[in-house]
Design a protein around this nucleic acid. Structure first.
Lengths: 136, 136
DNA sequence: TCAAAAATGATAACAATTATTAATTTATAT
DNA sequence: ATATAAATTAATAATTGTTATCATTTTTGA
């Protein structure tokens, strides 16, 4: 894999985020710095970086994938109301993989743990019980 | 919500599955029994049933959502090679939600636990290390 | 410095899903 | 049973997220 300025920009822009942006968010932000960067380039490089383990693709929200520059194992919370993804800095339970391996025939490489519910913001703004479960 | 024959068909067809089909699989299967049913009707009813809590939408595979007629809490395994989703009949860890609630401000209603790896079929057919991580 | 390999930007193509709308079906009050 | 309002449908257009194509530009290494 050769060097590319655009790939570095994508990786850097993602690293600025502590939320977990989608490809189009990264794209919009980068366009301001580099008005010629292409949407396809952003998708291409996010894919490459995820495949070589530099970043992580989060696939547990319906619709657009989210990306995470933090690749060491950690858990997430997803708001069923607005779809926001935030980190849960609790300890990772490595024993879960051993337990699960007793029940399945394939090879387990890891697990994703996603807590679901309604985020603070949606709670207070009353968005919660109104369209309860917009993301379902 | 009024009765509809099509909604019953969708729910019944899903209940036949122990794997976790996508909307288009349900659609293709139903077309053989009921050649006039529409794709939009399948999507509409899967959505309604999921919002209802009659069935469960599985959003942790990139691309198409999967659906599960088994609504009581249980865990899954996803093959990173072929995308297949299978049940993991291990015990559900309710304590996880309590632990997580100490770290986040929102309201937790539950969690999804997804084990990842390579399924038996992909292991033996050598598909695994070839395109390692096709779904990433 | 030149050629091969890799990457890019622009955009077409594709896949998954939702929106629209006229026609049909269901529930309901007579 | 009948009329009517509300819900649902089939067909299909539209939208969204993502990948493929391809001519041009960059990178790399001899």
């Amino acid at each position: 894999m050769n060097y590319s300025r655009q790939r570095e920009e994508v990786q850097e822009q993602l690293s600025f985020h502590h939320d977990h942006p989608t490809a189009d968010v990264i794209y919009s932000e980068l366009r301001e710095k580099d008005p010629t960067i292409s949407l396809a380039t952003v998708y291409r490089n996010l894919k490459l970086l995820a495949q070589n383990g530099t970043i992580r693709r989060l696939t547990f929200v319906s619709g657009a994938d989210h990306f995470d520059s933090n690749i060491d194992p950690h858990y997430h919370f997803v708001c069923d109301c607005c779809g926001k993804v935030i980190d849960v800095p609790m300890q990772v339970a490595e024993t879960l993989d051993d337990t699960a391996s007793k029940y399945i025939s394939g090879n387990i490489t890891g697990h994703d743990l996603v807590f679901r519910g309604v985020c603070d913001e949606c709670m207070t703004s009353g968005r919660s019980s109104v369209g309860s479960g917009d993301m379902l």
